[in-house]
């Protein structure tokens, strides 16, 4: 008798065409088709999405919470990446 529940998949939903895919949860399934069908039954019973991505959990690479400081640091001192860094003459108005 098998008690195996199959590998874990992460499920991403697109709410409406054109919108980004957002993570909504995970599930167990033995293969791709099953992952999609289970995701449909589990996460879209009320029209929550028009498109689904199912990704094997072990294929996801994630940053560590301890990384918050050093990992994202390089972006903090580059104020010139923001539009507010630049002065546009009043005469030009909106740009």
């Amino acid at each position: 008798m098998s008690d195996n529940q199959g590998p874990v998949w992460e499920i991403f939903l697109q709410k409406k065409a054109g919108q980004p895919f957002v993570h909504c949860g995970s599930l167990h399934a033995f293969d791709k088709e099953m992952a999609l069908q289970n995701a449909r039954d589990l996460y879209t019973r009320r029209g929550e999405g028009v498109s689904i991505w199912a990704v094997p959990s072990n294929a996801i690479v994630a940053s560590s919470p301890e990384d918050i400081g050093p990992f994202f640091e390089p972006s903090n001192d580059k104020v010139y990446r923001h539009p507010t860094f630049y002065q546009i003459p009043d005469a030009i108005g909106h740009m």
Partner: peptide, 9 residues
């Protein structure tokens, strides 16, 4: 069912 799904995969 679990066994069959596993074998099929």
């Amino acid at each position: 069912v679990r066994e069959a799904a596993q074998a099929f995969a």
